[in-house]
Design a protein around this nucleic acid. Structure first.
Lengths: 148, 148
DNA sequence: TTAAGTGCAAAATCTTTGCAAATGT
DNA sequence: ACATTTGCAAAGATTTTGCACTTAA
């Protein structure tokens, strides 16, 4: 995977411009926080970290515009809370293409995107037409294994 | 799959007794509604159907006790809304064993449990320990295919 | 009889909407 | 300049909590 392949490594201002979003401080801040950790981050956690630097409503709007533009994708953790992670570069507006397996730790609830794991083939009954697969592997992450 | 294998076909009063829950009218009503349709049903949809026969708070409590006792399991649809479907008989209190593929229609958002589809094998990086897989196949259900 | 379950009111959260002020291009 | 974006206030929706009344066993 080249640097270009993953939006994580792009220049954030450039990324916003490409998505036809204005380059604003709150947006840059959110991009910074999302890429800070290896795991996907939820809106509540972002809110905790960002504190009152950014209004809660603005955060909602930033996240949904990022999702719409294909900058981040949403993964639901085990509690059904949405978490956000950067998309890979083949996502565009309203069209997410970055199918990959997600790992969710059943203890700390962290969500990881596993781009290196290959997607399995699934045979559906003929009454269904398959468009995409959302696969969540649930188990223990490395830090939670140690503490068992 | 025998009739015994699926809680759908059990006597509801018996099912509640086995789970050490009292047999009450609201609980029987909820079980009836959940098994009415082929697809899983959300709390909001249940609420619409049941109307004011059952208090909203009671519905919340019934659903979470059912989930805890392994009577139903929760699947998140594409909007992150929890939907509920009957478990198979190998689920017990606090221990859900009915791993199976779910199908979610991207148009009508219906969630189906596909017990007949076999689970794939996934190879995770060694830093993760796999406990279970949650697989959502997304696409078109038979009714939504026709209308395309 | 009595522990469990229900319904109602109210609190606590979470999410959306409307609009005036601020900001990026 | 002008369309976007932000922040604040307020509305709306969802979920939880507390408690008195009811009901199943």
């Amino acid at each position: 995977m080249t640097d270009e392949k993953n939006k994580k490594n792009k220049d954030f201002a450039e990324l916003l411009r490409e998505s036809k979003l204005k380059v604003t401080a709150p947006r840059l801040r959110v991009l910074n926080e999302i890429t800070q950790k290896d795991a996907a981050i939820s809106q509540p956690d972002l809110e905790k970290i960002i504190g009152k630097d950014i209004d809660r409503v603005t955060l909602y709007r930033i996240l949904s515009s990022f999702e719409e533009k294909g900058i981040v994708h949403k993964i639901f953790d085990l509690n059904g809370t949405a978490t956000y992670a950067m998309c890979t570069s083949n996502c565009t507006e309203n069209h997410h293409h970055d199918q990959h397996v997600h790992f969710i730790c059943s203890i700390c609830n962290s969500v990881y995107c596993l781009n290196e794991v290959s997607l399995p083939r699934i045979n559906l009954p003929t009454r269904f037409t398959l468009h995409s697969l959302a696969i969540n592997a649930v188990g223990l992450c490395s830090s939670c294994q140690k503490e068992d």
